[in-house]
Nucleic acid binder design. Structure first.
Lengths: 181, 181
DNA sequence: CCCGTTATTTACCGTAACGCGAAAAAGTCA
DNA sequence: TGACTTTTTCGCGTTACGGTAAATAACGGG
C-alpha cells in the first residue's frame, strides 16, 4: 500500500487499539525503507498524482516473521482513572462519577460496535481462514474487555454514589438499593 | 516523601499499572518543583545523607484537584499481540501459542495476587474510608481485567491449537460449543 | 488563468515520556 | 584507604507522538 492508503484504512483495521495519523505513517514507512524492510515503487495514476506503493522485501518479510515470534510483554494499563482511585480522598467525587458515566457509555458503544462487526463478519461465529481466525480472536478479546470494563464502571458508579452522599448514620447495610433522594 | 522513598514505594502502590524508575521520579519531582506544585524541605538525618522531602503547596493541591476533575480519556490497549492477530496469516502460530500460554500464566498470577491483596485488605469486601473505596475499586477492575484476559487466552490457545494442526477433512464441527442467543 | 479541491507526500519543529549509564555527595563500616 | 549504602543529579540518547504547513500533482469551475 501507499502511505495515503494506509492512513485511510488504518482506522477500520487496527485503528481500534492503535492510532496513527498520516505523518506518523509516512515517518514509519521512511524508517522501514531505510532499514530495507520495504521498498517503494511509484505507481503512475491518471487524474491523480502518482503514489508510492510499498511492498515488503525478503528481509522485511523475514523481520516481520521474526518480530511475530518474539514474546510480547503484556502492556501496562496506564489509566488516569486508576491513579485517581489510588488517592481517591484527594479528589472530588462528582466529576469522577461523571467521568465514569462517560466511560461506561464509551465502553458500551465499543461493545455494541464490536458485536455488530462480529455479526457481520462471522454470522455463525466461526472463522474459515487463518487470517479470519486472528480477527475473530481480536474481536473476542475486544468484547470481553469492553464488557468487563463496562460492568466495572457500573459498579464503580454505584459505589461512588454511595460515597458522595453524607455518610448515613446506620452502619451501611445495603448501599446498592437505589433511591434517589 | 523524598524521591528515594517514592521510588521505593512506587511498585507496591500504583506500580501495578504504572512504572517509573528513580530517575524519572526525580525528573518529575523537579518539574513539579519548577512549577511550584511541590516544595522540598531538607530533612537532616544521622547516619545517612540528608533527604529532600517534598510536600504539596497550595497551588499544587489545587492543581491536583483540578487534574482530578478533568475527564479522562480511555486508554488504548496497545498490544503487540493484537497486531499479530490482525495479520495472523503472516506469522508462525507456534510461537504465538507459546506467547499466549505465558500470558495466560501471567494474568492468572496477577489475578491471584490481586485476590490475595483483596482478602488481606478487605476481608469482608467492604471499604470503610473514601481512600479505601478507591483502592477497592482499583482491585476490582484489576480482578475483572485479569480474569477476562485470562479466559480469552484460554480460548485463543485452543483456537490456535486447532489452526496449527493441518486442517481436518471434516468441516470443523465442534471447536467450541456456543449457543449464541 | 486563477482558484478551490482532492490526492499524495514531505519538511520542520516541537514535546512527553522514558531508558542508560554514570557520578556526585554524604555518610557508614571494615 | 576502599567498599558499600543512601540520596540525588547529570547528560546523553530514543521512541513515539502531535501540529502546522507546504510542496507536488491533477482535476474542474468560473
Amino acid at each position: 500500500m501507499s502511505g495515503y492508503e494506509l492512513a485511510k484504512t488504518f482506522d477500520s483495521s487496527i485503528g481500534f487499539f492503535w492510532k496513527a495519523d498520516h505523518q506518523q505513517i509516512y515517518r514509519e514507512l521512511s524508517k522501514l525503507r531505510d532499514r530495507g524492510h520495504i521498498q517503494g515503487h511509484e505507481v503512475v495514476q491518471s487524474g491523480k498524482p502518482n503514489k508510492l506503493v510499498y511492498t515488503l522485501t525478503q528481509e522485511g518479510r523475514a523481520a516481520l516473521r521474526h518480530w511475530g515470534a518474539r514474546p510480547s510483554s503484556p502492556p501496562m494499563m496506564k489509566d488516569d482513572l486508576l491513579v485517581r482511585l489510588c488517592a481517591l480522598d484527594s479528589f472530588d467525587i462528582e466529576p469522577l462519577r461523571a467521568d465514569l458515566m462517560a466511560r461506561l457509555e464509551h465502553h458500551r458503544d465499543r461493545y455494541a460496535r464490536y458485536e455488530r462487526i462480529l455479526n457481520k463478519l462471522f454470522p455463525d461465529g466461526k472463522a474459515t481462514s487463518v487470517a479470519d481466525t486472528g480477527k475473530l480472536l481480536g474481536l473476542r478479546i475486544g468484547l470481553r474487555h469492553e464488557q468487563a470494563v463496562a460492568e466495572w464502571c457500573e459498579e464503580a458508579i454505584e459505589t461512588l454514589a454511595a460515597v458522595a452522599k453524607p455518610a448515613p448514620i446506620l452502619l451501611l447495610e445495603d448501599t446498592s438499593r437505589e433511591s434517589n433522594g
